[in-house]
Structures are given as C-alpha cells and as structure tokens.
Amino acid sequence: MNELYLGQFAFAFYTLIVLAGGVLAVSSASLVRAMLGLVVSLFGVAGLYLLLLAEFVALMQILIYVGAVTVLIFFAIMLTRASADGGEAEGLSGAGVLRAVPIVLIPAGILVPFLAVYGVAGLPTPKNVSPAELGAGLLGPYTLAFELISVVLLAAMAGAVLLAFEKRGAKS
C-alpha cells in the first residue's frame, strides 16, 4: 500500500514539474526563459517515463530532447541575432491570446470528457521491457521504420545545410 501512495506522490510531483515548465515556456516574454521552461518540462516528462518503467525512453528523452533539440533551438535564437527577448518583448498580444484560448479549449473540451467516459481500463502497473527486447524489435519486425527514420534525418540535415548556405546576394 505504501508503494502505491509513493507512486501517486511521484506522479503528482512530475506532473507539477511538467505543467510549471510548460506554462513558463508558453507565457514567458523572453525566449531564453521560455526555453528554460521547456527544458524543465522535458525533464518532467522524462520522470513520467521512468514512472511508466520505460527507462530507456526516459534516457533517450534526456539525451535527444534536452541534449540535442534544446541546443538546436538555442542556436536558432542566437543566430537570428535577436536580443535576449527575441522579439517577444511586447509580450503576448491581446488578440493572439483571445484567438489562442478557444483553440486550446476545443480539443481539450472534446478529449477530456471522452477520456473520462470511454477511457480504457488499463493495467494497474506498467509492464517491464528490457532494452535488449527493444533492440531485438528494432532489428526484427521494425527494421523498416528504423531505416526510414534514418533517411528522414539525413534528408533533414541535407535540407538544412542547403537552406542555410543560400547565397546572400541571390535575388529570388
């Protein structure tokens, strides 16, 4: 019984981290602070993965998202030579917030009642899958998906290099 309460406490704690980071990420007037909020939120999601016994996914979350994607976005902020506020200094515009609120409420208002009514009765505890089984899956039935994601990454890199090296004087 004690472990159950501990698990609920951990879930509430990580959810709080996720939501606090997310709110900072969407509401901060400074883009650098918004990125800090995103990093906090990503760590919270990694904690939720750990609670789900998906420890390999949690590690990959920290390596790929916190390690790579965040650094990429920081580069985007730096290379656009924006000031620290990144052009968000005026804060969120009133019309933008007015437009955004219904756009958030419509999917949430549809999905959450559906979850409450038709939610599948899940298992009480998550399953345990070792990284070895994940590797066997990647080399077995899911090889095609693995190769395709490699091709997508290669194409994205090549496209990014091509775009970034565009000639400055070229009129187009």
């Binding site: 990125m35 995103l38 939120s41 756009i103 949430a108």
Partner: peptide
C-alpha cells in the same frame, strides 16, 4: 498528455516569433 497538447497549441497560436512557435510544437 492532453494538457501538454493544449499548452503547445496555445504557444503555436499566441506567439509572435517562429522560435516561440517551435517551442509549442516541441511541447
């Protein structure tokens, strides 16, 4: 997960800069 989706949609619509919108997509 739905709350994360909502936060991301909010950032995507309300933000002025492309980087701010990218943060929403990541969420």
């Amino acid at each position: 997960a739905v709350l994360l989706l909502g936060l991301g949609l909010y950032a995507l619509v309300a933000r002025r800069t492309l980087v701010g919108m990218l943060i929403g997509v990541e969420l």
